[in-house]
Design a protein around this nucleic acid. Sequence first.
DNA 1: AGCACGCCGACT
DNA 2: GTCGGCGTGCTC
Length: 863
Amino acid sequence: MAGRESALYDETLLPLDGPEPGRRYAQVIVDVPAKQTNRPFDYIVPPELEAWVGVGSRVGVPFGPRTLQGFVVGLSESTGMDPRKLKPIEQVLDLVPPLNPELVDLARWMSRTYVCHEITALQAMIPGALKAKYEKYVAVAEEADGHSAPPPEGQALLLAGSPEEDEITAFVRQKGTVPMDAMLRRFPAAGPLLKRMLERGVLVEVQTVKDRLNAKKVLYVEPAADPRTLTEESGKLAAGAKRQKELLLHFAAHPSPVPLAELTDKLNVGAGTVKALADKGWLTIREREVFRDPYAGRSFARTEPLPLTEQQRGAFAAISDALGAERHDVFLLHGVTGSGKTEVYLQSIQQCLDQGREAIVLVPEISLTPQMVERFKSRFGDAVAVMHSRLSQGERYDEWRKIGLKRVSVVIGARSAVFAPFTKLGLIIIDEEHESSYKQEESPKYHAREVAVQRAARHGAVVVLGSATPSLESFARTSGRGAPYRLLTMADRVEGRPLPAVRIVDLREELKAGNRSMFSRGLYKAIEERLHKKEQTVLLLNRRGYSTFVMCRSCGYVVQCPHCDISLTYHQVSRTMRCHYCGLTQPEPKTCPSCDSEHIRFFGTGTQRVEEELGKLFPGIRVIRMDVDTTSEKGAHERLLTKFRNKQGDVLLGTQMVAKGLDFPDVTLVGVIAADTVLHLPDFRAAEKTFQLLTQVAGRAGRHRLPGEVFIQTYTPDHYSIEHASRHDYGAFIATELDSRRQRGYPPYCELVLVTFSHEQVAMVVRAAESFATRLKEKWQRMRTEFDSVSGAGAEDRYFEVYGPVASPIPRIKDRYRFQCMVKYRGDVDVSGMLTETAAAFDETVRQEKLHISIDVNPQVLM
DNA sequence: AGCACGCCGACT
DNA sequence: GTCGGCGTGCTC
């Protein structure tokens, strides 16, 4: 156990800036996400806490009848309130404030931009372990106050309670304070009685804010006397106490603290021996906080910067220049797969660190593989903290603390790492910037790319957005007058390796030729060849499960989820039908649930079915399947990839998670089973996503010595996204797609906001959605008249339109009906403000009728 | 979000 | 005449 912890947490914690003026009152955002509480409340900072309270501190404050968690967003010498009415802050929850003034300000920007409560934005910035948790205790009244509670007038006699009541009082008095749930466990039938006792004031309820988790503590042993005394004492020990003597001499020679576990391991002494010496007063056993280090015990061979190619040098020079000048610049680094973007990142980070500033690297969750982490750890060593969802809550918390304690200066992580509480930020890198996982789908529905640019601007820091297939939004920002981003291009793979040859297979032709299998003849032969040559294959199918839907061929009935308007997917392994939206699982039907016919059939192909088919076609083939179902366990993702890397698998078959960033030397074949799955989704980005997916997965082949080959199977071989992907022609794709977006009026030619309404009753949701749309349009009409009267510049570029409401593409999820409105706008329009105000009118309906309104600014998914 | 305060129906 | 429905408003 002891080996898992590394760096000791024995920072000497000093109070913030010491007593200074302007800390008398604190403005606090409390943990109540509601419109009416979405503003700071003033509190007195008690003198004894003054030194520990800063902007960004997490505090416990009394709010109405209870105690809540809150964040300090301001400190001041005066207050607009009557100071006598203010309550004091009860507790400061962290020794080091988890946020800082810049992040607090960023949270305000987020709440305005993404239309969410400020507390929601603040909560998103801290690790889950610090989310508020409240505990209710009961205590006997006079003990809680420290003085006797006055008996209510004329009821003194009644207060001499029933026997049950006396029993309860005695129990609580003996324990001091008792958690409410423990009370109910001890006295299961006493609920109403407890309530009465609380009402009468015999008992009082105390609520406190608790951390969900505490720093990990380990027992350490240290000497309690100076070495000379220890040596002397060791001589006085009984002759038989050899172990004790050894121990004392050890500490006489090495007086530094040692983990108890290490002591018992290495010096081969029992814990009892240590305890005995502690009891005698020569040693002290103390709890100390340690970091849980998920990468402890692994060594990373130090790497040196590699020589750069000419293209890499060009890109690095531009970044380096901006870094040197501490100028806020955003670069879009467009580098084909295998062009060596990572090395450019690494050297840019190095320069940033040399300048004494800090760097954040964002990567999509899925490509945060050990391989990736290793590249950074081996260049920057202990200066790197890693944050991703596969870490335990505790591990995550500890990585986070390293940032606040200035133990690290580089953070590599998924989306939320953009909030790493650095104070001297110099560089933010977003790898695979086109990835949709940078958008958070829950409130606050922020995009890490937008937040990164915002943060960097505040720090005068550089942003590097890297991708082989940049998003249209980012690309569009690199051209034209006053373009906010600068484009850096790396068009060739390192060492002149060629991009793999891509073949498009028309599945309609296969069918005509009588091939009804899911593998075209070409792909079949190619796989067979790889098995022969002992080379490896990656197969992509963007659909998990076994089949996508189950239909009765007699009556046409399709098995659907009873709670969502979506067909259920059949999972072969568990022989169950599952809803991919609400998680419902039910047994497979033997006969048609509607007409009882036995002609029930599975349609559509999922990864499980491909796996089965591969086994039939190539007996003995070793398939590693990677999808949500096989990677849900902690570490499973990593394990499967390692297995493939060690060549314990011939084929890596998976959903889009096999397309991203993987780099295996022996992969020479990539097959896309069905390229059209994404293309026909009801999403204006369908073509873009298809192009990106195909380009990315094709990039997995032939990255090393052996040349690669790619097969793309499709029913629409002429579609431009497929054609251009096959020729690795980003420029041509972008031109066509931009044109199409302009014609259809979609980003980057306008901005979008998706407003989704959901409720258990259709009538309610329709009414709310329509009324919302009407109000929003009216608001725009009023604003436009104002604009016209001022006739300011840019008026002609201003555009605003509300579309819908219409039923959502999935009209019902978890028994709630869903309708949506789409706002399209362009130019200087405060749409977020308009939406905030419009939504405010529905506040009561939201509260009372359980209507949900979701506002998604720049949505990535239109479902 | 909780919780108290406050104004109109069916009951001892 | 009261007990209680949940509409409205407040929490530093």
